[in-house]
Computed example of a mutant assay.
Amino acid sequence: MPYRDNDPISDGPLSNAPFGYSPDSSQRVALYAELANAGVELGTYDRRIVDWIAGWDYPTVATIASLIRRAGRAPQ
């Protein structure tokens, strides 16, 4: 399974839209956490866009967070 225990962000490729709901504030935290874990340095405009994306629907935000997580992994 591509999900960690109690972690709604997938570690692997998605074949279907993630299901669920998360408030904007939680989605914002998840996006910033994934970006930080991937070592992405953010500027003021970057943060503005992340805050905007955090207000999108849960399946889209969860997919973006999953993409960031997977892109941030060291090549195998």
Rank of each mutant, 00 (worst) to 15 (best):
M1I: 02
P2A: 12
P2N: 10
D5H: 11
N6W: 14
N6A: 14
D7W: 00
D7S: 00
D7P: 01
P8W: 13
P8K: 04
I9R: 03
D11L: 04
D11C: 03
D11M: 06
P13F: 10
L14C: 03
A17W: 10
P18W: 09
F19C: 02
F19K: 09
Y21M: 10
S22Y: 04
S22F: 04
P23L: 10
D24Y: 11
S25I: 12
R28Q: 15
V29R: 14
V29S: 14
A30Q: 02
L31D: 06
L31I: 05
L35P: 07
A38L: 10
A38P: 02
G39V: 09
L42T: 14
Y45R: 12
R47F: 00
R47H: 10
I49C: 13
W52C: 08
I53H: 06
A54H: 07
W56Q: 11
D57M: 13
P59T: 05
P59Y: 03
T60S: 15
T60M: 01
T63C: 01
T63Y: 01
T63L: 03
I64Y: 05
S66Y: 07
S66F: 04
L67W: 09
I68V: 14
R69V: 00
R70S: 05
R70T: 03
A71S: 15
R73Y: 01
R73D: 02
A74H: 09
A74P: 01
P75Y: 07
Q76T: 14
Q76C: 04
